[in-house]
Computed example of a mutant assay.
Amino acid sequence: MATPSFRHLTIDTLTTWIDADYPLTLVDIRDPMSFAGGHIPGSRHLDNDGVPALLESAPREQPLVVVCYHGHSSQQAAAWLAGQGFAEVYSLDGGFSEWEHRLPERVERGRP
């Protein structure tokens, strides 16, 4: 039996998907203060306490993108989520740090 796996996603591809209103679930696994300080618009904060709600509510057939600080810990989270039945799971290469560096105008501060 094959082990479920995730794929890497570039910032350029994620930007294209967001601009095209491509249906996806975008989760940010950084700590709550970092998330509040800035995050990719449309993302939701995900910590261990929020995992059951995500598993219950997120559409399994739609891409799930995991964001962390630099694109390292998101790989572990993405691999685990791939094993939970999501059809397409991605880890954002470069993480939020690279997103903020390249696209500072596309950072949402706090929660609306």
Rank of each mutant, 00 (worst) to 15 (best):
F6R: 04
R7Y: 14
H8I: 14
L9G: 06
T10V: 07
T13A: 13
L14S: 02
L14A: 01
W17L: 07
W17E: 06
W17T: 06
A20M: 05
A20E: 06
L24P: 00
V27I: 07
I29F: 04
R30H: 10
P32D: 03
M33S: 15
M33R: 15
S34W: 13
F35W: 13
H39A: 03
H39I: 03
G42T: 09
S43Y: 05
D47R: 02
N48V: 11
D49W: 14
V51C: 05
V51H: 00
V51R: 01
P52K: 04
A53F: 09
L54P: 02
S57H: 06
A58Y: 00
P59Y: 03
L64H: 01
Y69A: 15
H72V: 15
H72D: 13
S73E: 07
Q75T: 12
A77E: 01
A78W: 00
A78N: 07
A79H: 12
Q84D: 03
A87K: 14
V89A: 00
S91H: 11
D93N: 13
D93G: 11
G94I: 05
G94D: 09
G95R: 09
F96H: 03
R102S: 14
R102C: 14
P104W: 08
E105K: 12
R109C: 09
R111L: 15
